[in-house]
Structures are given as C-alpha cells and as structure tokens.
Design a binder for these strands. Sequence first.
DNA 1: GGGTTACGGTTTTTT
DNA 2: ACCGTAACCC
Length: 998
Amino acid sequence: MQLNAQQLKAKEHPSGPLLILAGAGTGKTTTIVQRMAFLISELNVEPSSILALTFSVKAADHLKEKLVEKIGADGENIHASTFHSFAQSVIDEFKSELKLLYRPNLMNDSEINFLIREHFNELDYIHSALFRRNPIDAIKTLKTIFDQFREELFTDEKLSQLFTQCKETINRDGADEKEREHYLQLMDAIQIYPLYQQWKKDENRIDYGDMISNLWRLILNSDNVKAQLQQRYTHIIVDEFQDNNHALSQVINVIAQPQNNITVVGDDDQCIYSFRGANIQNVSGFKSRYYGSPEYAEIPLMENYRSTKPILKLANEIIQFNPDRVKKGELHSQKESSFIPKLYEGSKDQQTAQLKVEIESYIASGVPLNQIAILSRTHKNCKLASEFLSKNRIKNQYYSERLFDNKLIKDVICGFQILGKTSYWGQSIYRLIKNKFGGELAFEFTEKLKYNKSRSLSELVENYNFNNETFHLWFNEIISISEILPENDILKITERIVKWSGVYKDNIHVENHQSEINIQILNQLLTHITNYEQSYPNSDFNQFVRYINISWEVNDIAVEPTWADDVINGVQIMTVHQSKGKEFSHVIIPFLVSAGFPLNYQNKALIQFLPANWRNWEVGDRSMKDLHIEEERRIFYVAITRAENSLVLMTTEKRQSNFIKNISSEFLEREKIMIESKEVEKLDTLISMFENKLLDAITFEKWNDAYHLVHSIQCIKDVKNGVTPEWNDNPYKVEIEENIYANEEVVNIPTELSLSATKISTYDKCPLQYRFKEIDKIPLLVKKPYFQLGSVIHKVLEIFHEKKMSTQNELLSLLDQYWTTEGFEYKQEEQQFKKDAVVMLENYFAYFQANPVHPQFVEEAFSFKLKNCTINGKCDRIDVTEDGHVEIYDYKTSKKQIASKDLKKDIQLAVYALFLLHDGIELIDGKKQKMIAEKLALLSLRHEEIETSVKFELDELVEKKDVIEAIADKIRSKDFDAKIGHHCDYCEFKDLICPEFN
DNA sequence: GGGTTACGGTTTTTT
DNA sequence: ACCGTAACCC
C-alpha cells in the first residue's frame, strides 16, 4: 500500500518523541508497522531494541501478525506484546530484586472478590454504614477502588495523606450526605488496601494491578533494572495511546529515557474507556511533556480511507461540541456519495420494524449480511434487536452471554445450592424438578419443601410418596451424592452433579451445532472450577459453594465464542465499545433516546471513581457530569465512524438524544417512520427459530441434524394448520412441545380469593411475581437480614405496648431479648443492623413520649369480604382518642419515607380504612362498630419526624375499593404478565425462576 | 418563566 | 435509586 504524505512523514520521522494523531480509519497500524520497518532498515535499529505495546491481547496479536507479514523474520524479533505481558516478563526476569522466590499466581475477578469476602469478617472497623449494611456491595466497590489506586500509582505516603484529607472533608460543614458517604468509603478503601495486599502475598498471588505496580516499583527502586531496560529498548511504540492510564504512561516515560525515542499513536476523540482508568488528558499530556524537546514532532493523520464524505461530515459536526480537543484538523476522505446519513423518527416498536425494512433492502441489493452492523449503547438494546431479527428470520450474530447466565450452568449451580443447603435450596429443587419432570410434579413437591426447615433431603423423601419411578431414582441419586460430600474432591462431585442435573443427557442429545456449544460452555465451567481447586486444594464443600456464589454474583465471565462463529454469516449486532476498531459497509444505530444515549449521568451511593482532584490529571472546571457527557459523545463518534457507505440512525419523535436533536438537515436527513409494527405469531417465531437452526446445520454440514430439522419444521406447520403431526423419532419433539405449550399450564385460582395489602401491591408491581408467590407457591429464599430486622422491631413494639411498658430501657432490653445473630453472614452487617434497630426504637420512644397514648389494640388481625375477594391483614397499632376517634398506625422500617401528599396512593392505609368501614372494631360496649378512620398514620422509624398521616373520605374509600376489586378480577382472569423494572433486582425469583431472566 | 409532577429510561470491559 | 425531559400548573 502506498502511504500518503502524512503517513510517510510519520514513517520517516528520524527519532525522538513522536505523537501520531491518527483519526478513525486513517491507516494507523499500517503506518506504525512501516515506521518500525523504517527504523530497522534505514536507521539500523536492532529489531530486539524495539518495544511495541498495546492494551489488549487482540491488538497485540494483530500487530505481531502485521509485523511478520510486512517485515519478515526481523518482525518476529520486535518485542510486541500487551503492557501486562511485558510487565510479567520483566518481573519474572528480575524477581529476585522484588524478593520473590516463585512466580506469583494471577487471580481472576471471582477469586479477588472471594478473597475479600473470606477476610471481610476480620475487618474490625468499617467507616461506611453502607459498606457495613451491604458487604457484597462493599467488596465490589473496594475492588474497583483498589484498581484505581494502582492506576494512579499511589504510594503508601500518598494514601495516608489522602486519608487525612478524607477526614477533613467529612468534618467540613456543607459537604452533602452523599459526598460524605463517598469519603467514608474511600477511608475504608485506604485502610483495607494494605491488608488486601498482604492477603494476596500470603497466598503468593497477584492481580492485574500488581503487575503494573510491581514493574513500576522495580524501575523506580532498582537502578540496575532501570538501566538494563533503558539500554535494551531504545525505541518504544505505543498503540491506542488514548486508552493508557497514568501508571502505564509513567512506566514507558522512564524506560524511554534518556533518548526519548518514543512514538505514540492515538486519537483523543476515541477515548471511551475512562471507566477503567484511561486518562483523557493522555494525548495532550504527552505533548506538554515532550514539547520542549527539539526532536518533538506531532503528525496528524486525518485522511480517512473508510467512510464517505457525508458520513465524515456528520462525525466532525458532532465531535466538535467537545471542548479541549487536541488540534489536528477534521477527518476527510475522497469518497463521494449522494447518500446523506438518515435519521428515522418513530416509537421503539416502529424502529425495530424499520430495522427489518432496512436490512431487507440491503439484502435485496446483494449486500452480504456480515457487512451490516447494528450498534447500540447497551447490551439490553442489542438483545432486543437480536431477538427481533431472529423472530423475523434474519440471521444475526450477537455475543454477550455471561457464563453464569447460561441455562445449563444455572442447572449445575442448582445442584451445588442443594448440596450446600444455601438460601437457594428450595428454588433449586423446584427449578430442576420443573425442568425435568414438568410443572405439575414441581407444584406437588412445593408444599413438602416449605415445611422442610432443616433442608434435609432424606426427610423430604420420607414424607413423599413416589408414584414416579424415574423421579424416585433421580432423587435417590442426589441423596447419595450428598452422603459422599466430605470424602470426595470438588471435581468428582461436580462431575456427578453435571450428570445428575441432566444437562449432558438432555442438551447434548443430537449431533448438532448447539450441542457443541453446550459442551464448550460446560467445559468452561469445569475450567473455572479446576482453577479453584488448584488455588484452594484443601477447600471444603461449603467454602467452594461460597466461591461459586460469589462468581455468580460477580458474573463477569463471558461465554467464549466458538471457532464456528466466524463462519456464520449474519447481521452483526454489538455494543459501540465492542465495535471499536471494526468497520462495516452499512451501520444502523437505533434507539437514540434521551437518557439512553447519552446515558443519564448517575451519582450513585457507592463510589465509582476517585475524586477528580485525586487524579494525576487536570480537568479544569468541568464537572464529573460534563466529563461523562463528553465521553458519551466520543462513544457516539466512534459508532458513526464505523460506517463505510451508509449510516442510518433511529430515534423517538420526542425526547430525542441530545446528540442529534439539533443537527441540521445538511448533515442528517430526517424521516418519520410510517409503518406500524405487528406482533409475530408464536408458531411463526418457532418456525423462524428452527429455520435458523437448519441454516446452522447446513453451514456446519450436520446432515442428519438437518434432516430432523426439516421434519421439525413440517411438524410445527402441521400444528399451525390444526393437523396432528407425526413425530416419529424426532429428537426435537420435547423442545418444540415445550415451546408451543409454554405458559399454557393450568393455573388454579382459588374460588375464595384471599388478598392483603402486601399481595395487592405485589400484583401491582409485577403480576408474575404475585403468581409465583401466591398461586404457584414457589419456595422463597431463606429470609434475608432485612426482613429479619423488620419482624424483630414489630415484635418488640408489640410486647412493649401489650405489657404497658413505659421506659426506654424496657424497650431496648426487649430488643436484646429478641435479637438474633442467626441469618447474618457478616459480623459488620449484624452489628450495623442492630445499631439501626436501636436508632429506630429510640426514635419511636421519643415520639411515644411526645404522644403518650395507650393503644387499644396491637397486632390486631382483621378480615372482611369485598365483592370478589376477601381481604386479610393485621394493624400494628389501633388507638382510640378520648372523643372516640379511631386512629390506625403502621410501623415502617424501610429507608424511604412516603411524603404526606403521596399517602393517598398508599394501598395499605386504604385497606386499614376499608377494614374499619366494612367490618368495624369492638369499642367499649363489646359491639362491633363501623366507622371512618379519623387518622391513618405511617411511622417511619428511621426518620426523626416519624409520623406522616392521612384521612380518607367516604368517596375516596369507595374508589379504593373499586381499584382492589379490579385487581381481584384481573387475578381471576389469570392475567400474569411479567412487569420488568428496577424492582427485578430485589425479586426473589429473578435468579432461577423468572422466565424473563432464565 | 419557574416550580412541580409524570414518565421513561437506566453502563461500557480489559489485563 | 436517580436522572433528564415533557407536560402541566400558576
């Protein structure tokens, strides 16, 4: 390939610091490869004196390949690798200087979280209440902060100085609550960090951050190492320089001395990894560091060989809104085109429908599917697009599955939960029985599970009458596995669990593409477990289950793609981050809605990043939020610049993304989507699914499988036409029937429908969750600490009033009496919860002293009938005032206090009022009296002003009654569609049961 | 115009 | 749990 003038200049730049500002698609790899060739042939640099560094393994492999291709044997002698593998090789070589005898073993993310988890109870004092209340969140947060300490190369002295700074900040007036909490978390991180380092050392382990910081310590503390490295590598080349963090930049700066023959290639407009420490000031920082040096040069490559002029015009228009960019001119190209990037406006459904139209028109004009890409900001939207295309018979490729989200892996995990008797115990048995033997048998089994408090399998068997021989045998097998737990190693047990759970037998039954994927996925799990066994050879089974559960919680292991994935020709669907470095003839970016892209900036309760003024770079007066929007804009810029020939954007009519809202039609042609989306029939979806499988079978030459699939498709079509299919020996029969009859199981609604305030709000939140809890009666997880706290508080207050006690001491000693440490995994958590309980009781007592009444009733149960249901419930406390007015009180232990104006929406208070209206209570004369409640109050115990209250008038209560009856009607009509939202994260059925996540 | 409420969204991933 | 915009109120 012929280099252009700028590229040539970069190639033949003599020596000294060189900054190549390489825009998207400007031939940067070619240029640096040629530059290395030039160094060797023209400047007589030894190949082994060149150090070429990248961040990712993929980029390193790509670079090595190109080097060998262009330079030949000399290319192989160039040290081209990732930063981390370079660091590791140096540490190996000089390990004696670090006083290491053996090469430390690298920890993966699950192991790191597990390590902190296993030591968490040793921590004596934790500053952050949030950390104390939620150790798992604390562990995850600590890990990311520890990484950032290393990215910024903080020394012990620096950390202790920052600790003092934290203390000053939290004592300062005017700091808001969240900021104060963040600094408490940072104080914890600083205090725990040396312990974390020691825990690793004790086990001769290191993490990725240690690789870089050890290298830094080596060259800083040993003149010998520094001198050797400086002599060995006289020329340094760094790729994707904008993604470097501070630590990496410092390391290469030192090694490059004294000649500073250092070439960096990067584009500040494509820096999209600041969440992992990438320093947005890297590029300009390089410039200011070496600007004074006489050999310093700066060469922009802005001649783009990828995109057409109109696409680049849009890209330039968008990125120019970012402040403080390094000066390098605009991207330009020679590719003329009359196609202006297009913007479709329509609802989300219309956008997906339009996706289909666009792709079909590309197909009609002969574009290969893998030249079309759908890019999205989030995985959620990628998934949406992928599922939509599959339903519509358009082959597509989207990889994002996490190992522990996989259905088969979850089945195996269920086996571990059963053996480990964890809180997932009941749900795991339920899930496996349902998968293997159907819903009816699972339903039959649930009652028994509920009453099996000791979680003993043999006890279950004694109480169960097995009519089904296969089921009986299967159950005996898990019992015999549980009996050999102590004397067998974890891999043995895993093997038996895998067999028992049926994932081999049931999912690898046909010689087809999917089976091969399934085998690979299972192997990935086995590898994960083998690694654990090697690291913890003396682990007992319970510890192993804790490890598995933390891996599951972290869930960051991606399912590896198979070799075969490259062969498939489908529409490419990926996140913008995944698309970096790639290019496609046609790019579609749908769902450009406000809050979606740019994503809303969120200042979360758990700290995510070090404070801006702790970093080794200046951001001027831009806020964290400004920086966030700028990064989102760069992400959008990266997405646009992937397109070669056509670029189609899609957005809603209102609430459009800020990035495109005011872009003039000169850059972007707008058009309203006119088509209406229509639902694809269930059986048609199934046919599409099998047609896709057939395509795979043909691609991979699984002819026997193809034969079955053709037959399967015929059978589904038969069902569609009302004909009874002839299944013969079709191995897909079970799978197809499951799909056809899914959600058509019998749901038995009791004739006497019993509701309560809680049940009503559960239904309101998610009808499916209501069904799981109240209709299917799926076993719940073992009580979480949070609920335990609530019930203890209620119990204590009940007794306090019942026994007519009157002092705070009496109240608090009741707490001591009823408090139990059971159910708490972490010491800190238990202590904090008890502290919270004391505060709540103190708040209550202060309130009680100001309002000294003796309640008429405590924990008063009630029941009354409405048109189509019975309402049951319990009032925490009922008072009768001197003038005969009734007041009902409810204790709230949750963090959130409902504002007075919102109380009328509260269903619970309305239910109490309805009870008084419909059923009444016994007053002095022993007769039940119906009336309107004068006052309905919530006592939010976590707040100083605990009382908020409301009164419902008659017409309002009639309205509420209608609402409840409407819900009862909906339940009776078996309306149980899942409602997805943030509440899903707190739903007990999310992990193993809910079809939306399984 | 300014304040309030309703509503619709809600992470990225490498070593 | 938290943010940004549209719609509404005055």
